[in-house]
Simulated assay, not measured.
Amino acid sequence: MQPFLQCGRFGFELKAMPLVMGILNVTPDSFSDGGRYQALEFAISKAEEMAFEGADLIDIGGETTRPGAAPLPLDEELRRVMPALYALRGLGKPLSVDTYKTEVMREAIIAGADMINDVNGFRAPGAIEAVAASDCALCVMHMQSTPATMQQSPVYTDVVAEVIAFLRGRIDAMLAAGIARNRICVDPGFGFGKTTEHNYALLRATSRIESELGLPVLAGLSRKSMIGAVTGRPVGQRLAGSLAGALAAVAHGAKIVRVHDVAETVDALKVWQAAHLG
């Protein structure tokens, strides 16, 4: 596994303590905190709070990709994302933009985004070309189908093997375009076209995914239905389950965890590190 992740103006050594990516949804309809940070002043305040709590990266998302969500018009996504991206440039933390739209990628890179986090695995026409010449990090995620239909009876013969094969194909395409390997991390896409059983099979296989692809794994399972399915808790009561999921992902080899609850995750990881690494 590569020991370093190039992330725009920043770089990370991927050793010992995993990176914590704080989620900043500037949307009215995200499954967990939709509407809470849609106003720019609240988004800035939340990002500053997460930075203070120990977030290593901030992931800005302007379009909900919850199951059943319809696509958002390009102009509206830009209207939501770009003011937040520009306003947070002085935060001193790498800024990721969560988008699958090529035009948003281009505008975000011009504005200085340090990472592009694409739930569609850079499959949109022109997506790889849009990011190739930049120095931003690239998170390549697996998703079966689209957000509007992905949870309508997803089926796999071998979910782990199929997700690895998909990610390997996308990585090969990116490398062929001249993208440096140390700019890439991968996300198995928990909740994106998977049943609860598929999600936990992938979680248990995190170390295999990392080993076979030779790239750091980002795990994003905070407050998701896979947590609710096991705990029986609604979205607003999934903190304990989300912390357990993050620790399980890290124990299985994840190098980045994408979370809503930064302070609690940072504390949990500090205790995990003290117990496991000394």
Rank of each mutant, 00 (worst) to 15 (best):
I110A: 13
I110N: 11
D114V: 08
M115Q: 12
M115G: 14
I116R: 03
N117G: 09
D118C: 11
G121S: 13
G121K: 07
G121Y: 04
F122R: 07
P125A: 13
P125Y: 04
G126C: 05
A127K: 02
A127Y: 02
I128Y: 00
A130W: 15
V131Y: 04
A132K: 07
D135P: 01
A137L: 12
L138G: 04
L138W: 00
C139A: 10
M141G: 00
M141N: 00
M143H: 13
T146M: 07
P147V: 07
T149F: 03
Q151D: 05
Q151P: 05
Q152C: 08
Q152T: 08
T157K: 07
T157I: 03
V159L: 06
E162H: 02
V163P: 00
V163D: 04
V163I: 02
I164Q: 04
L167E: 03
L167H: 01
L167Q: 08
R168H: 14
R168E: 15
I171Y: 01
D172V: 11
M174C: 07
L175D: 04
L175W: 08
A176N: 09
G178T: 04
G178C: 07
A180K: 14
N182W: 07
N182L: 11
C185K: 00
D187R: 14
D187L: 12
P188I: 08
P188S: 10
G191C: 06
F192H: 10
E197C: 00
H198F: 10
H198L: 12
N199Y: 00
N199E: 05
Y200L: 15
Y200P: 05
A201W: 06
L202M: 14
L202Q: 11
L203I: 13
R204E: 13
A205Y: 09
A205E: 12
T206W: 08
R208L: 13
G214A: 10
P216I: 08
